[in-house]
Simulated scan of single mutants.
Amino acid sequence: MRDFFQGSDTSTGAKARIEAGTLLRPEGLRHFLKATPVGAAAGKRPLVILLHGAGSSAAQLLGLRFPPSPLSLWLEIAEREHLVVIALDGSKRRGERAWNDSYAGVTANPQTDDTGFISAVIDRAIAEDEVDPARIYLMGVSKGGMMAYRAATEMAPRLAAFSVALAAMPVDSNCGPPRTPLPVLFMAGTADPFIPYTGRKFLYQFPIFSSLAAPMTSVEESVAVWRELAGLHGEPAVAAIPQRHPGAATRVTRYTWGGDPAALQVCLLKIDGGGHAEPSMVKRYPGLFSRFPGAQNGDIEAAEEAWAFFKDKRTVLE
């Protein structure tokens, strides 16, 4: 019953320490949480930037607020792999933190330069935290994933790779189509009520949600945009992920275009039956959430999948 209402966390690894930070931007003071490993760095460290979903926060993303996000496992990865992880807060709009993402015409979006905020945080981390400029990675979930699309379009040369979970690209974009290829990891559920896998329709058709998003492409159309840009036209390598509990409501298939993990790759983790929940084996949302916003997969670990995708990739610095 406790798991049904409160969820569960069976992770046991040491965690990177968290400290709060601020950065003065033209729109005002912006906030973030930075996690750094306890041990001294042997060299320059990779940096992972995390972007939360609508109505959420950096604190929820790093497990400090209910319901703790499965992406809080990045704290253990940071300690184990000697990363710097920075979770950013969107600016407040109508009482909730939000992003000026790539969706044109969304009235709930603040009119802030969030790509500029991300870039400024990267600059500070390079200057103060021994971060490697060739190993900058970005991951966004839900509306944070929509913001990640915009940031990847506007600041592609600074990123070695990015990942989006539970997010698709807009039909009409604030920033135009991406122009620079990047390695991308997608995670998406076929039963997500907020991000329909087949696209176009969204709960925006109901008045209560009309300010949150606009028509979107299908997940596979979003994948195709980045595949075409990278010149990855062939058939993908396909791998079915074994179910940890046979007969579970969800099942994951990995589709990978590009065979070299150190080069351009596009990967889709398609979660059949998955709802609007980041997959995790050890950090489980309350069972009540399986009714809405849908089933959480327990066969893969979202943060570990992202790190496995990121770790060999580097930006070619001029």
Rank of each mutant, 00 (worst) to 15 (best):
Q6T: 08
G7D: 06
S8L: 07
S8I: 02
T10E: 13
T10D: 12
T12Q: 15
K15F: 02
A16K: 04
A16C: 05
A16Y: 02
I18M: 02
G21M: 07
T22V: 11
L24K: 12
L24V: 13
R25Y: 10
R25Q: 15
R25T: 14
R25W: 09
R25C: 10
P26H: 09
E27T: 09
E27P: 05
E27V: 03
G28D: 07
G28A: 08
L29V: 15
R30S: 13
F32T: 00
F32V: 00
L33E: 12
L33A: 06
K34R: 15
A35D: 04
P37H: 06
V38E: 15
G39Y: 00
A41D: 08
A41C: 14
A41S: 14
A42R: 12
K44G: 03
K44I: 01
K44W: 01
R45K: 13
P46N: 10
P46Q: 06
P46Y: 12
L47Y: 06
L47E: 12
L47N: 04
L47P: 11
V48W: 02
V48Y: 08
V48P: 09
I49D: 08
L50W: 09
L51H: 07
H52F: 05
G53T: 04
G53R: 05
A54D: 11
G55W: 00
S57P: 12
S57N: 03
S57Q: 06
A58G: 02
A58W: 00
A59H: 08
Q60T: 13
L61V: 12
L61D: 07
L61C: 08
L62D: 12
L62W: 10
G63L: 02
G63H: 08
G63I: 03
G63D: 06
L64A: 05
R65Q: 15
F66G: 01
F66S: 03
P68N: 11
S69P: 14
S69L: 01
P70G: 14
P70T: 06
L71C: 05
S72L: 03
S72Q: 15
S72V: 00
L73F: 09
W74I: 00
W74T: 12
W74K: 01
L75A: 05
E76N: 07
I77A: 12
I77F: 05
I77R: 07
I77E: 11
I77L: 15
A78Y: 06
E79F: 06
E81M: 01
E81C: 04
H82L: 12
V85E: 09
V85N: 13
L88R: 06
L88A: 10
G90P: 11
S91M: 10
R93L: 03
G95N: 14
G95E: 11
E96Y: 10
R97M: 09
R97N: 13
